[in-house]
């Protein structure tokens, strides 16, 4: 602290007590570090910031020149442009809308992403890897995060460059102005199960509007089974992993992780098995 005193000493004497305040308050973080590997922020850090700001401005001007902001025709509520695309950063969500109902793709999944991000520091017990790039010491965390990020970006890439009329899939070399033929109707998982196992679709019990059939119960079993297995397998096999996390953290993390994996799982169920809904109830469908 003595070293700091001398520089403060050379300041012109000020009547206000702000000069002394720095000495009184608890050491702020920057004072804690030893003086030897220090550089003054002025000019070093400030110059770097100035240069990066200049570069950013140049980039913005360049972008503005090569592709000025578009302005389409006046808004009219009766004709919907085809295709209607949200801004690029929401195209990940809009692409999800092809596979999930709006309440899931538009509200629940984004909220899970946000809540997941908020919980991240509280469910990551790994003390290593603080303040430096590392993959070797934080494999699971980095892999999980990069997978989520990659999913988000790939859905945006598809939404921006691969979706054309009626939001159907268009390869870049195809003719983007001719409507794609109507693809076959999608079928619910419980209908597939019902058909293959030849079960009657008379409901076992009806709760109000909800006629529960055997196939429907099977889909419930599959859906809850997915989460049950996801929770229990790592618990049984990797007990050390569980112990470092603790009960609450483990369950929060696993729920987020399984839901994240559930998204591509449903997408592939849709792409490969033509499944429309995995789980159907009159109130919500997944």
């Amino acid at each position: 602290m003595a070293e700091k005193e001398t520089t403060l000493g050379t300041l012109p004497k000020r009547d206000g007590n702000s000069g002394g305040l720095a000495a009184l308050i608890k050491k702020s973080a920057s004072d804690k570090m030893g003086p030897e590997d220090h550089v003054l922020v002025w000019p070093n850090l400030v110059y770097i910031e100035l240069i990066s700001m200049l570069f950013a401005t140049a980039l913005l001007l360049f972008l503005s020149l090569i592709s000025p902001a578009p302005l389409e025709e006046l808004a009219s509520s009766d004709t919907t442009p085809n295709p209607t695309k949200a801004p690029w950063y929401f195209l990940g969500l809009q692409e999800l809308l092809v596979y999930f109902d709006p309440w899931l793709a538009g509200v629940v999944l984004p909220s899970l992403i946000i809540v997941g991000l908020v919980l991240l520091p509280y469910i990551d017990p790994n003390p290593k890897g603080k303040g430096y790039y590392t993959f070797s010491e934080r494999k699971f965390a980095v892999l999980g995060f990069c997978f989520g990020l990659a999913l988000w970006y790939i859905l945006i890439v598809i939404g921006v460059w691969f979706r054309g009329l009626d939001w159907s899939w268009y390869w870049p070399w195809e003719n983007w102005h001719h409507h794609k033929p109507i693809t076959g109707g999608l079928v619910d998982l419980e209908v597939i199960i019902g058909k293959t196992l030849g079960m009657s679709d008379t409901p076992l019990v009806t709760l109000g509007r909800y006629g529960v059939t055997i196939a429907n119960l099977i889909t419930w079993a599959l859906f809850l089974g997915y989460y049950a297995i996801g929770f229990s397998v790592p618990f049984l096999t990797m007990r050390k992993f569980y112990n470092t996390l603790g009960f609450v953290r483990y369950n929060l993390m696993m729920f987020m992780f399984l839901s994240m994996l559930g998204v591509p799982l449903k997408i592939f169920l849709r792409l490969l098995a033509n499944v429309k809904y995995v789980l159907v109830t009159p109130w919500f469908k997944i």
Binding site: L143, C146, F147, L149, A150, L151, Y153, I154, V157, I158, F162, S168, W169, W171, K180, T183, P264, I267, F268, L271, L272, N274
Partner: peptide
């Protein structure tokens, strides 16, 4: 198309990761 999307999705995710 369906298969193409599936492959594109998998490859794309792995590439970005």
């Amino acid at each position: 198309d369906r298969l193409g999307i599936g492959i594109f999705l998998t490859v794309g995710t792995l590439v970005i990761m």
